[in-house]
């Protein structure tokens, strides 16, 4: 007896690799930008973490490079329905960056060069789940993919992984970011297919 026909799902998924609902696998790395690509020189690059009391912690590029570096290999899931498996990065865990930051905040609003913002619970930046990455596939991260450095939060839809990351504001109350203000889901879990508000 023949097997049941699973129906058409686009390109076949790789054996043994999980794909969230409504996604298809891509081998290339699509570029989806909401504006011109900022060209940020590492000589002037800076990352600020601002707590709910207004205390500011800043890192230069040299500061970032002196911190412990990790090499996560993760799957990416974009809300526009493509997923990319096994991407290799190098960067600094948010656990490392925020280790000495005193805060009682529950939420973060991430800002980028160029003005983009996105919000997420602070807990989703901690616990080995998020990084500031500067190297992709062994090479400096190209500006079209968010170089010199972007946020990487692979367990949420990719719009949360802000390219050209510039700041992280820690907040007691949640505040929606660029797409979250306009109908996209506040959290964005690809496994629960949280694309839009109400999902």
């Amino acid at each position: 007896m023949g097997s049941l026909t699973p129906g058409f799902h686009g390109r076949p998924r790789p054996q043994g690799v999980a794909l969230p609902p409504g996604q298809y696998v891509t081998e290339d790395f699509p570029v989806l930008s909401a504006g011109p690509t900022p060209r940020v020189d590492t000589a002037t690059w800076q990352l600020d973490v601002v707590t709910e009391t207004g205390a500011t912690h800043s890192w230069s590029w040299a500061d970032l490079m002196r911190l412990d570096q990790e090499e996560p290999t993760v799957d990416l899931h974009c809300v526009t329905r493509w997923s990319k498996f096994g991407t290799s990065w190098r960067g600094v865990s948010l656990d490392t960056l925020l280790a000495d930051v005193a805060s009682a905040a529950d939420f973060a609003l991430v800002g980028a060069y160029g003005g983009y913002t996105t919000n997420l619970p602070l807990a989703d930046l901690l616990g080995g789940k998020a990084w500031i990455v500067h190297t992709y596939d062994g090479a400096p991260l190209h500006p079209v993919h968010g170089g010199p450095a972007r946020l990487l939060v692979p367990h949420l839809y990719l719009w949360k992984s802000a390219k050209w990351v510039r700041s992280i504001r820690l907040m007691v109350q949640d505040s929606p970011g660029f797409w979250e203000q306009l109908g996209y889901h506040d959290y964005g879990d690809p496994w629960r297919e949280q694309r839009y508000q109400g999902d």
Binding site: P30, V31, L32, S33, A34, G35, P36, V79, T80, G115, W159, W179, L182, G183, Y184, R195, Y196, Q197, G198
Partner: peptide, 25 residues
């Protein structure tokens, strides 16, 4: 127009003028 929605920007200063997202709601 390649992102999660349409973003219209000023050609002079790149500021966002208008955003449009179509969702099931």
């Amino acid at each position: 127009s390649h992102g999660p929605g349409l973003v219209a920007r000023c050609p002079g200063c790149d500021a966002v003028l208008l955003r449009l997202v179509r969702t099931p709601r």
